[in-house]
């Protein structure tokens, strides 16, 4: 049994919040650079150049990439052979978010109630997804999720008879009707199967996969590529000003489902695809 102290969890979560908001992941930088080479629209190329320059300034000067530093979505994988000492693990994650957003000069965008809309003042609580896994490690991923792309995401319970065509149509409709709002070029996370909430969670988890990596399931890799080509044919382009790069990648995760269900969730992420992971 390995022991980890809550203080370490606070410090690491805090650092992940700051880094995720100020430093673009190398795979995302590479994808944006490739997009700039592929984009045929001069305006689109100019926009992609500005986004790369923005990333350089943000990392160098520790200014957030985007002023919407999001609600913190935190994925925690707890090894079943880890013992947490010094308090509540959940409270430590929350404290880490509080500290990271305060000390990193990140925007506090969380309201206490969806209807009363009173700001909590410290960007807590985060949305935490827990998973217990074999081993003696603790893995924390922080994904600051902004409203621009989250608000254009969608979920539908399809009829099984709608099949693959129905799934493709729903993904295309979601990206098409979102247009410029979610800050394209996007990474499109798709959750297919399970139940209503499982599909939504899969779609979000799919956004954590590095851009430019292939789906390990061969048939899904093919589907992702054909969707990427279709979506880039929509013409929306970088920040919606017209162009051939509307999505950087499509990432699909699936799960077994019920004989009478076909849930499909589409979670859009802006061009920054902000997230940082640490393994303790």
């Amino acid at each position: 049994m390995r022991t980890l102290d809550c203080k370490t969890v606070v410090e690491v979560t805090s650092r992940l919040c700051r880094e995720a908001n100020c430093v673009l992941e190398p795979d995302v930088v590479a994808a944006l650079e490739m997009a700039r080479q592929e984009e045929v629209s001069p305006t689109g190329r100019d926009v992609l150049g500005q986004l790369l320059e923005n990333a350089r300034i943000a990392a160098r000067e520790e200014i957030p990439i985007c002023q919407d530093t999001g609600i913190a979505v935190v994925f925690v994988e707890v090894g079943q052979d880890v013992r947490i000492a010094g308090g509540s693990l959940e409270a430590a994650v929350v404290q880490g978010v509080r500290k990271g957003y305060e000390q990193g000069y990140l925007r506090k965008s969380v309201v206490a109630g969806p209807l009363d809309r009173v700001n909590t003042g410290d960007n807590t609580p985060p949305v935490i997804h827990w998973r217990v896994v074999p081993g003696d490690c603790l893995k924390i991923s922080v994904m600051p999720k902004g409203a621009g792309s989250e608000n254009m995401s969608a979920l539908k319970m399809l009829k099984p008879a709608e099949g693959l065509d129905g799934v493709k149509r729903f993904i295309l409709e979601t990206v098409s009707s979102a247009g410029p709002n979610p800050c394209p070029p996007l990474v499109v996370g798709v959750g297919l199967g399970g139940t209503l909430e499982k599909a939504a969670l899969l779609a979000k988890e799919a956004l954590l996969r590095p851009v430019g990596t292939k789906n390990l399931v061969g048939e899904l890799a093919g589907l992702e590529e054909s969707l990427r080509v279709s979506l880039n044919g929509l013409g929306i382009g970088p920040v919606g000003l017209g162009g051939r790069v509307t999505v950087l990648a499509v990432h699909i995760l699936t799960y077994p489902t019920h004989i009478a269900m076909l849930p499909v969730a589409v979670n859009l992420n802006c061009h920054a695809v902000r997230h940082k992971t640490a393994v303790l």
């Binding site: 923005n54 943000a58 000067e61 990439i65 985007c66 920040v239 061009h271 920054a272």
Partner: peptide, 12 residues
């Protein structure tokens, strides 16, 4: 329209 997601650049 301003470039969405270019918050650091625009701060300059």
């Amino acid at each position: 329209g301003a470039v969405g997601g270019a918050g650091a650049l625009l701060s300059k």
